[in-house]
Write a protein that binds this DNA or RNA. Structure first.
Length: 426
RNA sequence: GGAGGGAUGGCCGAGUGGACGAAGGCAACGGUCUUGAAAACCGUAGUGGGCUUACGCCCACCGGGGGUUCGAAUCCCUCUCCCUCCGCCA
């Protein structure tokens, strides 16, 4: 959520920024018009309320019955007028709030301009694309051959975009989660185990609602929304709180499954485990002072990169251009890992500074150390990492000519010492 | 699921129709004292919004929503959450 004052005081700044995002700027004028109408009604209503308050106090002190009755009659009239004004006011406020809630965050000035993902900028590549002396298999062939992935039975249980991991596959998933959480803990993050279903207000606070309703699952009878990312509960857990400045920064990490309807990606990435309706992710999240958030972004990026480096995978760091930024983000780096079997770079992490965008929506503030008004902290989120694509990269990069897969060294303690995944009985 | 009790400022806690934005305490900030600190004492101080060049004025907020009233933290309805007891259950 952007500050309404930004629209009033610097509408052109907002328009320019929205254009860079390839977003319509018509909302700016609509918002300004609603804001003006709202304030006009507010002033009328408040003037009447001031009168009512003043006269009501007089009534309490008025002894003369006639005068008293006369004042009561007059205030009855005023009450009606206030009710009518407030009704109109509520309507304008609801419209304004709804519009404001659909405006994306403004890009950081440092973000390169571009129309869409084709204009993202590859900042660097770490590691070489491995040259294999045999034809590497894609994971959707490798997994079933090893007996560690079962697509048919996933579909039988739940339909398309669901799968079963089995034996060493299931162990590998669990090992990756546990290892990543331990790594982030060493990097200074506090581990959180949040609810996987949250209230609508929480999904609004992190910015997934109202715009991305179609991508979310929710209970038809109760106010439960399945989290599409741990970012949602990690934002919501401090909703309506005021930190002391000394409480910041806060570093959190959490594993959650993520549930997404993927309506927007119909037909894309249907093979294998790349894009499911349910997937696991380990997330990093930081609350920090505004002037520290860019440093925090660099730390988080480095922390995410470390997971790929320790797994021995080749990856590249991509800076998203203005046209490809997510709704809440001011600046985002993606990490893409090379998958030799699929023959593509897979997005396994997105590390973003959202500034005060989520804090404002969630009403999360901190009190400055020297006293003074509470202010909005900045929040950052980053995957560390998305599990299915990390698993794809591990399997495809560590596959051997005989069809087995070597377990990366850092994961072996988490897999009971297993060094190689070999074909298992179906 | 049934019965009862609760929800008040950053935190704790008083307040049952009119001078209550709300006693008192803790924490915070400024000052006195002290070599410095602590203690003690004095003082400041809620959050959001509107108007104003400004001093400042006004509105709203006592879990959420609605109602009664000239006037609601206080009365009524409703929802949510917490606590106690009973029942059921991984």
């Amino acid at each position: 959520m952007l500050d309404i004052r930004l629209f009033r005081e610097q509408p052109d700044l907002v328009r320019t920024a929205l254009k860079k995002r390839q977003t319509s700027t018509a909302v700016v004028d609509q918002i300004l018009a609603l804001d003006a109408a709202r304030r006009a009604l507010l002033q009328k209503s408040e003037a009447l309320k001031a009168e009512r308050n003043r006269v009501s106090k007089e009534i309490g002190r008025t002894k003369d019955p006639d005068e008293r009755q006369r004042k009561i009659e007059a205030m009855r009239q005023v009450r009606e007028e206030i009710a009518a004004l407030d009704e109109m006011l509520r309507e304008k406020e609801a419209q304004l709030h709804h519009l404001l809630a659909t405006v994306p965050n403004l890009p950081d000035p440092a973000v390169p301009e571009g129309r869409d993902e084709s204009e993202n900028v590859v900042l660097r590549q770490v590691g070489e694309i491995p040259q294999m002396d045999f034809q590497p298999l894609p994971h959707w062939e490798l997994g079933p051959r090893l007996g560690i992935m079962d697509f048919e039975r996933g579909v039988k249980l739940s339909g398309s975009r669901f799968y079963i991991l089995k034996g060493a596959g299931a162990q590998l998933e669990r090992a990756l989660i546990a290892w990543m959480l331990d790594l982030h803990r060493r990097q200074g993050y506090t581990e959180i185990y949040p609810p996987f279903m949250v209230k609508e207000a929480v999904v609004f606070a992190s910015g997934q609602l109202p715009k991305f309703r179609d991508n979310l699952y929710h209970d038809a009878e109760e106010d439960f929304w399945w989290v599409p990312t741990a970012e949602v509960p990690l934002t919501g857990m401090h909703m309506d709180e005021i930190f002391d400045e000394s409480d910041l920064p806060r570093y959190y990490t959490a594993y959650t499954p993520c549930f997404r309807r993927e309506k927007m990606s119909a037909g894309r990435d249907v093979r294998g485990i790349k894009r499911g309706h349910q997937f696991d992710k380990v997330e990093m999240y930081i609350y920090t002072l505004p002037d520290r958030s860019q440093d925090a972004l660099q730390k988080m990026l480095a922390d995410a990169e470390q997971t790929l480096a320790e797994l021995g995978l080749t990856y590249r760091v991509v800076q998203l251009c203005t046209g490809d930024l997510g709704f809440a983000a001011r600046i985002t780096y993606d990490l893409e890992v090379w998958a030799p079997g699929s023959g593509e770079w897979l997005e396994v992490s997105s590390v973003s500074n959202v500034g005060d965008f989520q804090a404002r929506r969630a009403n999360i503030r901190y009190r400055p150390a020297g006293g003074g008004k509470p202010r909005f902290p900045h929040t950052l989120n980053g995957s560390g990492l998305g599990l299915p694509r990390t698993m794809i990269a591990v399997l495809e990069n560590y596959q051997q000519p005989d069809g087995s897969v070597v377990v990366p060294e850092v994961l072996r303690p988490y897999m009971g010492g297993m060094e190689v995944i070999r074909p298992q009985e179906a």
